[in-house]
Amino acid sequence: MLSILSPIMRIIEIPLQALQRRFGIQRLAWAFLLPNLVLFGLFAFLPIILNVIYALTGGDNVLLGDRPFVGMQNFQTLGACSNYLDPNTCTKDLFWRAVWNTVWFVTLQVGFMVGFALLTALVLNRDIRARGFFRGVFFFPVLLSPVVVALIWKWILQRNGVLNAGLEAMGYDSFAWLVDRGWAFTWSVFLSVWAHMGFYTLILLAGLQAIPRDVYEAALMDRASPWRSFTKITLPLLSPTLLVVLVLALIKSVQVFEEVFAFTGGGPGSATTFMIQFIYQTGFAGAPRLFGLAAAASILLALVLVLLTALQLWANRRNVDG
């Protein structure tokens, strides 16, 4: 591999050597940074600023020069609601449905996922055989693509699927799972827990293994019950890791889109439409393309994410300080 790159590397060396002679060693750092900074500026930094401009302008033109300034109108459209708890009273009812769906989804998904991840980590932390294998079993769905995850479960849940066959074998009626609003949502939560749990299990397992053994041995000497050593030793010592896991899971969960979109397409109706899908639909999927509205919604989402990230940094620091 290196031998193929060798001539390319030599060609790059020529201008860099000239720069080095001209500006000296320390300032050459900028040359190394340049490609990354250009990409960063164009695709990470500039978009943040442009997003604000989009949110403050209207129309369905993507070019900024053709977009009339509308002030806070996009935010007002999103926020026009006589009762925030009832999306039917809102101008943009889909937005509020997406908001409430996301709130419910995040609560359930993060709750179940962190709960099961903790349970799994505790099980894997016991003296079991083939721990590496079992860790892999719980971890591998993390690597599957969202579309693959969605199709795997769609195939199981479809009308002639294996789940319905099992139900009929046990004497129940088969059921059109993804046509029912409640079940489609429930399965979306399940699928998301299934796909991402392994990642958090891994982090929690690392946290558990960092707890020194002798603490437990001391507790055993004092005849502490297993439950007592769990609540008095494991949980307090694991709590910094647990906090990090919780915040990480929240950040990911708020951005739920890909696997559920491939799974249900946001339906039936809008039962599984979440924030990102609202942004995608408003800005990219339908006509007219309401870029301003999409940008306004994504700024609101970004605020939530910044808040959560601040929480994460705080949790990380607490973790390091111990």
């Binding site: 500039l46 990102i276 989402l301 994410l305």
Partner: peptide, 20 residues
């Protein structure tokens, strides 16, 4: 700046990213 952009995932700057 690097740390700052860690906070803003691609998912929330889709519209301007599309323009660029």
């Amino acid at each position: 700046i690097v740390i700052g952009t860690l906070m803003i995932p691609q998912t929330v700057v889709l519209v301007p990213l599309f323009l660029i």
